[in-house]
Nucleic acid binder design. Structure first.
Lengths: 261, 261
DNA sequence: GAATTTATAAGTGTCGACATTTTATAGACC
DNA sequence: GGTCTATAAAATGTCGACACTTATAAATTC
């Protein structure tokens, strides 16, 4: 099994989502948390590829612990959907199928429209203003053509949205679903012109929040999520791994043929 | 700690939901599964009350195992929301607050409306017909004034709905949320005239499915869930436990003052 | 007698070990 | 050479043990 590299200093957005979910379900600084954090991060970053084995004895050596906390960490990651643990068999990094991605996006579209409605109905003006800096960050990244920067600013924007909507349950669910989709982030940005479109949507969305236009906000939010899925599907992502490790990362850098119907 | 009674022979609806969720996440017949099943059932049935301690050494004695599988079972129940595990402290049966219930119902209302839309859009006529026997069961229970019978027929109805909608993710989420709400089943049926209203809604809903009327089905489904919450709130449920063990069961038998605004 | 401190009991998180099952390796056979 | 079988290696699920923490009971103080 591959050795898992430590989490780098400059904590990226991916790690932030992971850490937040861990905060709410596990304890502050435990062995289990630390292991789940590092293994989860390795999965999100693509260092561990879908289908890779995650045997507990190997991991316990890497983290200088016994197998017990490793098992619990893997169990946690399984509940978050990042790991599969067949009985009596080695845990594996979850392989994400297209159907699964479609289903998740369907749920996300629905729940984010709820979030939008809740924000309009219940969030304070002060809370809504908190979204602005991230919109600006997205605008800056868009202008600079910084795909990765745009993506993480967008994640942060959505994070604030789920926070200020006031419904902790929907937040928990969306966080978990987001975690599983982070691997696809490169696919979701591959299409040229995507950033401009997305940015425009978010600017309109923010205005809808401010103007307390619930139907518009809900519809926009739903559309944003749906378009995210459409881009992934158009990018040709299928969930199959090329065995030589050619991941979505490389695909993301290419310009795909325009197909703007 | 109280001794946990074995699960009775005639498997009730509550156990069915629990078993289904276990089927999808755990292995077929493992120690962990058996423990999670029994403890979970005891919580749903009210045999274990919110706030009760669940220390692992005691449980391991009851099940004649070591603490390891008990810990894993409790960890699983924590992820399902039935148990809280503060670090270094004894696990407890989760105490459900009113805010939490409201949030959960908000999510359920939304996701069930999605389920309704998906059924109209994608379920086969044959699948929709599968709902009919449970509607009939509900009608019979309603006529007989059988609260409990009506409730479980309703659960079964919803179960088929989430199954035939074809989205496994939404099913998983709704199953988990349902599990946590099962304890409130008595509160949710307490209001007089509630059964007739609910039955009528479901009859209309089924017709909407058959006639492939997506907006109507979605609206009906949303209304059904919302009315469920309203009944709970009107029943005076607050989440506080009377320390002498007077649970919602007794409250359910009383007739509350009519308040049909 | 109530509140605070002290001592005792109980419980948690982690560990290393073992039996059983799965996986990988080597040998036999065609 | 390739397929099947027997053997060895490795990994899993479970166990009992131990250090450390938390909860409970007793003792002390005001």
């Amino acid at each position: 099994m591959e050795r898992i590299a430590p989490i780098p200093e400059n904590v990226t957005g991916g790690h932030a989502v992971l850490a937040r979910i861990l905060d709410r379900s596990n304890q502050q600084d435990s062995l289990v948390r630390s292991i789940a954090e590092q293994v989860g991060y390795a999965i999100i970053e693509g260092q561990l590829q879908p289908g890779d084995d995650l045997n507990s004895v190997d991991l316990s050596h890497q983290f200088n612990t016994s197998r017990t906390p490793v098992r619990e960490a893997l169990l946690w990651l399984e509940k978050e959907g990042l790991v599969e643990i067949p009985p009596r068999r080695r845990p594996r990094v979850t392989r994400l199928g297209l159907k699964e991605v479609r289903d998740i996006y369907e749920v996300r579209a629905n729940l984010y429209s709820l979030v939008a409605e809740l924000i309009v109905a219940r969030a304070s003006d002060a809370d809504i203003v908190r979204l602005e800096p991230f919109k600006d960050q997205m605008a800056a990244a868009c202008q600079a053509g910084d795909l990765e920067g745009y993506f993480w600013a967008n994640v942060a924007f959505q994070d604030i949205e789920t926070e200020i909507c006031g419904n902790d349950q929907v937040r928990r669910i969306l966080d978990s679903l987001m975690l599983r989709m982070l691997k696809l982030r490169y696919s979701s940005l591959s299409h040229p012109g995507r950033l401009e479109q997305s940015l425009q949507d978010h600017e309109r969305l923010l205005r809808a929040y401010i103007e307390r236009d619930a139907p518009l906000a809900a519809a926009l939010k739903r559309g944003i999520v749906r378009r995210g899925l459409a881009v992934i599907e158009r990018s040709g992502w299928s969930g199959d791994e090329s065995p030589d490790g050619v991941s979505g990362e490389i695909l993301a850098e290419e310009d795909l043929p325009e197909d703007d119907r």
